[in-house]
């Protein structure tokens, strides 16, 4: 009788420990399930894992006027929203007036930064946010559990939650949802800009790039060192070096793949303000 009680309590204890280490064990057995990118053991593309591409966006702030000079809403946002059937209330690329330290203001478009050290990927409990081999940060809405901890982690506020089932247009309803083309958006999951992964795969430039009437947005591949705004093709690294390129909130160490080219004295304080 005494033995059986002891055995019972031992079993209980092991069951408790087992619950605690279960995620670890299941991880080990599941590494191959979705490729290294979403495996979760280390989704960060480092070490022996080489990237096939490194998609990069460069936004020339000298050219961006927030579309006010053509008296329209920002065209990158408009074309993106239409092209991706972006749910109501979301703007995957958002254009905002930013006050510079010098007292002036300028326009600045904000897509997802596709950080190389993305806080959102770090905190995701189920590997729904992951890095691709092409340097993108994507969301698998069929994996996402809707806890929104990635929204807490993102310092750029570039993630949106699908609070309700969006009203579907026929094209959106027929689309086949994938991380590269999250249409139709799934209620209860998180959406964001995916650098038009579905377009660049087919050799097309992202919608916002072709949608910008000023040619302010460039897109390209860091590996091949070229970018284009749909009108001209320029070398990437040289452009960044010669134009004092900066990344937003560089000090956080997230290493975004979106660069901005200043031109209006952005980020440089001047005491000459009247």
């Amino acid at each position: 009788m005494g033995i059986s009680r002891r055995r019972f309590l031992q079993t209980l204890t092991w069951a408790g420990l087992g619950t605690a280490v279960y995620p670890l064990l299941s991880r080990v057995s599941k590494v191959e399930a979705k490729g290294w990118a979403a495996s979760g053991l280390d989704p960060r593309p480092t070490g022996t894992k080489t990237l096939t591409k490194q998609w990069t966006m460069v936004i020339d702030l000298k050219k961006c006027e927030g579309c006010v000079i053509i008296n329209k809403p920002p065209q990158c946002t408009v074309t993106c929203n239409q092209g991706h059937f972006v749910p109501e209330g979301q703007e995957w690329i958002k254009v905002s007036k930013v006050r510079g330290a010098g007292g002036g203001s300028h326009w600045m478009p904000f897509p997802c930064m596709h950080c190389q050290k993305a806080p959102c990927v770090d905190v995701c409990p189920v590997g729904a946010s992951y890095y691709t081999e092409e340097g993108l940060v994507l969301i698998d809405q069929d994996r996402c559990i809707g806890c929104r901890v990635c929204m807490a982690a993102c310092p750029y506020h570039r993630r949106y939650f699908n609070w309700k089932q969006q009203r579907l247009t026929p094209e959106a309803a027929l689309a086949e949802r994938s991380p590269e083309y999250p249409v139709p958006a799934l209620k209860g999951t998180v959406s964001k800009c995916m650098f038009c992964a579905h377009n660049v795969r087919k050799g097309k430039i992202p919608i916002c790039v072709s949608g910008c009437p000023m040619g302010a947005i460039y897109f390209g591949d860091l590996e091949r060192d070229i970018i284009t705004n749909g009108m001209e093709v320029v070398p990437l690294r040289k452009t960044l070096a010669e134009n004092n390129a900066f990344r937003f909130k560089e000090e956080l160490g997230t290493e975004p793949r979106v660069y901005y080219l200043p031109g209006y004295g952005q980020e440089f304080g001047r005491e000459a303000r009247e």
């Binding site: 619950t19 770090d122 905190v123 995701c124 409990p125 189920v126 994996r143 559990i145 809707g146 901890v149």
Partner: peptide
Amino acid sequence: MGRPERVFYVFIHGRLQSPLIWDVMAVTS
């Protein structure tokens, strides 16, 4: 949760880097 029916994903897809998984482990223990 936005998709409560997927709650078991934290066990089958759980990632140790996520503080949420630490919480799952701590709370169950």
